[in-house]
Structures are given as C-alpha cells and as structure tokens.
Amino acid sequence: MSPIQVPRPLTSFSAGVMVHLAFFSLGVAESQRLRELGVREGNLIHVLKNDDTFVCAVESSRIALRKEVAMNVFATLSAV
C-alpha cells in the first residue's frame, strides 16, 4: 500500500472493500444530506454494491446512492 493515496470516485471501488471518505464535489444541500445520512468526510464506509446502482454500509445502515452522486464522492481505500 502506497503511503499517499489520491482520492478516487466511489464508483471506482469494487463491492466488498472498505473506504475512507475524503471529500464531495456536490452542491451544498446535497453534501449536507449525505452527511446527515452518515456519509461524511472521514467516515469509514463499506461498499456493498457497485454495478448499475451503488449501495454502501455506514455502521448498521445501508445507503443507496444514484450513480451520478457516487461519482462525485471521493474516497481512499482503507487499510483495514
């Protein structure tokens, strides 16, 4: 694992991996909504599904994201 990872869009991770959320490139209201749902910068999330749709797990909840939204959420692969 390289010491510095460049954040990539969520859609570039395959199902099953854990990622650290880095930043959003979304509008204010949209970013706000995501944070309230627990999808927040710095959080560890589990990618459950990434094909035609995107689903991730944050703690015990499951959050579905539209592809276009997931493409604008950037994250790095987690070491754990």
Binding site: L34, L37, V39, V55, R62, I63, R66
Partner: peptide
C-alpha cells in the same frame, strides 16, 4: 433543482 438521490434502505 438537480435531481438528487441518496436514501437509506431500511432493514
């Protein structure tokens, strides 16, 4: 209004 879609899937 961009159509935003992020929702929780309850158990």
């Amino acid at each position: 209004e961009s159509s935003f879609f992020a929702m929780e899937l309850p158990p």
